[in-house]
């Protein structure tokens, strides 16, 4: 299949497509493969996954502007929504599939690192506020704690675009 044929098929596809560009010798590709398989099963009937071996089909990779692997590109009605390059966490790949399925921007998801940092900072500031009796530090502590979990609150989720 050539690059232009892939583009035609992407535009003709009724369902959103995640193009997974990989190679047999690519370690991160192999590491991510089980997650992609799981998500493919979970989003079966909603999002299609096309796996492209960049060794056997370099034209397709070149036509999609892929320079590194693994690369995951989400398409909807032939239009590229977003792409991820390199090994990805389960949460980022899940966001990619959700974005492809819904067509809207993925809901912001904080990383574990962010949550831990903000929770620890909030706790330290809270303790400091309690020791010093400083009101502003209570406020900052609360803000730090809330900022670590805001993406889990329903209010933070945008309504689907038309």
């Amino acid at each position: 299949m050539t690059g232009s044929e892939v583009r035609r098929r992407l535009e003709a596809s009724d369902r959103p497509v995640i193009v997974d560009l990989w190679a047999p010798w690519c370690g991160p590709c192999r590491a991510t493969a089980p997650i992609i398989e799981e998500l493919q099963h979970k989003f079966s009937g909603t999002v299609d996954v096309w796996k492209v071996n960049t060794d056997t089909e370099p034209d397709i990779a070149a036509s999609l502007g892929v320079r590194g692997i693994p690369t995951f590109i989400a398409f909807r009605r032939g239009q590229e929504l977003t792409r991820l390059v390199g090994a990805q966490s389960r949460s980022r790949l899940t966001s990619l599939f959700e974005q492809a399925a819904s067509g809207r921007a993925a809901a912001a998801r904080l990383s574990t690192q962010d949550r831990v940092l903000r929770t620890a900072a909030g706790a330290a500031l809270g303790l400091m506020a309690w020791q010093t009796g400083t009101g502003i530090l209570y406020v900052v502590a609360l803000l730090a704690l809330v900022s670590g979990y805001y993406d889990l609150f329903p209010l933070s989720r945008r309504s689907p675009s038309a």
Partner: peptide, 18 residues
Amino acid sequence: RIARVIAGIVLLYLGWAG
């Protein structure tokens, strides 16, 4: 980020705790 947060907390403590 970790260094900044620690530095910030230390500075705040030095100031607000007197």
